[in-house]
C-alpha cells in the first residue's frame, strides 16, 4: 500500500451515471492484482476517501469505473482532466485462482462487472465464460471487454437486449452445460444472494468482491466490518478493506 499522486488524464461516460476515469502517475505504481481496490481522496468538502475497485491498471496508470450514487461520487464526476488526487493503492486481497481452476465463470451485475474485467489480464491462461446483467439495454456496459477473453452472455431485466431476466436466473439455466470450476462475482446484494444459492446447489465454489462503507481503508479503524462465518461456524467481523474485499461467497452473511 502506498499513498500516491494520480493525475486524471481521461474521463468518459459509459452509461447514465457511470463514468470511466483513467489516471496516470509520474512514479511507477506498486504491483497491482485483479480484485484489489484503491482509496481515493475525492476532495471538495469530502474528508473520507472513497474506495473504487481497480478496473484496469498498468505500471503508471490505473482506470476506475465510478457510479454516481452520492455526494462523493458526484464530486468525482465533476473532476477535470489534469486534476490531481491522492490515492492509497493497491488495497485488499483480490481474486486468487488456483491451478485446478481451469474454467472460470465471471458473473457481474451492473457496475459490479468492473472488478472482473482485470481477472483475465492477471490470469491469461484460463478459459473464461462471462454472464453480465443490467437493468435495460441503455445500461449495458463492458460487453466488448469480456468478449476479448471468451463468450459473453448479456442479460437485461426488461429483455430490451440480450436474454431477458436476472443474470443469475439465466445462468441457472445454463450452468450444467458450462460446468465452471469456480465462479467469481460482484454485484448488488440480491444478485449475490442468488449467486450464493446457485453455488450451494451446484457445489461450484464462488468468490465475491464486496462493497461496504469504508473508513481508513488500511485496516486500522474497523468500520468496514463484514460478517463472515469461520470454519467452526462462529461468526466474526472481518475487515472488508484488508481481509477482503474478496471473500468466499458461502462464508459471507449477506
Amino acid at each position: 500500500m502506498k499513498d500516491v499522486k494520480l493525475k486524471l488524464t481521461r474521463k468518459k461516460t459509459l452509461s447514465e451515471g457511470v463514468l470511466e476515469f483513467e489516471f496516470f502517475s509520474d512514479e511507477k505504481l506498486p504491483q497491482m492484482h485483479c480484485g484489489q481496490f484503491l482509496h481515493l481522496r475525492v476532495g471538495g468538502e469530502f474528508l473520507l476517501r472513497r474506495p473504487f475497485c481497480l478496473y484496469k491498471y498498468g505500471e503508471r496508470s490505473v482506470t476506475l469505473i465510478v457510479a454516481v450514487v452520492g455526494g462523493g461520487t458526484k464530486r468525482m464526476s465533476e473532476m477535470k482532466e489534469g486534476e490531481e488526487v491522492m490515492a492509497v493503492l493497491p488495497i485488499g486481497n483480490g481474486f486468487t485462482l488456483e491451478d485446478e481452476h481451469k474454467k472460470i465463470l465471471l458473473l457481474g451485475g451492473g457496475v459490479g462487472c468492473a472488478p472482473l474485467v482485470s481477472v483475465p489480464l492477471t490470469y491469461p491462461n484460463k478459459e473464461y465464460v462471462s454472464y453480465i446483467g443490467f437493468s435495460t439495454a441503455n445500461a449495458v456496459m463492458f460487453e466488448d471487454e469480456f468478449s476479448k477473453f471468451g463468450s459473453v452472455t448479456v442479460c437485461t431485466d426488461d429483455g430490451s437486449t440480450g436474454r431477458k431476466g436476472y443474470v443469475t436466473d439465466v445462468l441457472r439455466e445454463d450452468i450444467e452445460k458450462i460446468k465452471p470450476d469456480v465462479i467469481l462475482t460482484c454485484g448488488n446484494t440480491p444478485m449475490l444472494k442468488a449467486a450464493a444459492r446457485l453455488s450451494a446447489e451446484t457445489k461450484i465454489p464462488a468468490y465475491m468482491s464486496g462493497e461496504t462503507r469504508m473508513g481508513c481503508g488500511v485496516g486500522a479503524c474497523l468500520v468496514c466490518a463484514c460478517a463472515v462465518k469461520e470454519k467452526n461456524g462462529t461468526i466474526v467481523h472481518k475487515r472488508a478493506c484488508v481481509d477482503g474485499p474478496v471473500f468466499k461467497l458461502e462464508d459471507v452473511l449477506l
Binding site: L48, T212, R213, M214, G215, C221, L222, V223, C224, A225, C226, A227, I235, V236, H237
Partner: peptide, 8 residues
C-alpha cells in the same frame, strides 16, 4: 465483535 455494519 462490535456492532453491525454500516458503522460509518
Amino acid at each position: 465483535e462490535g456492532n453491525p455494519s454500516p458503522r460509518i
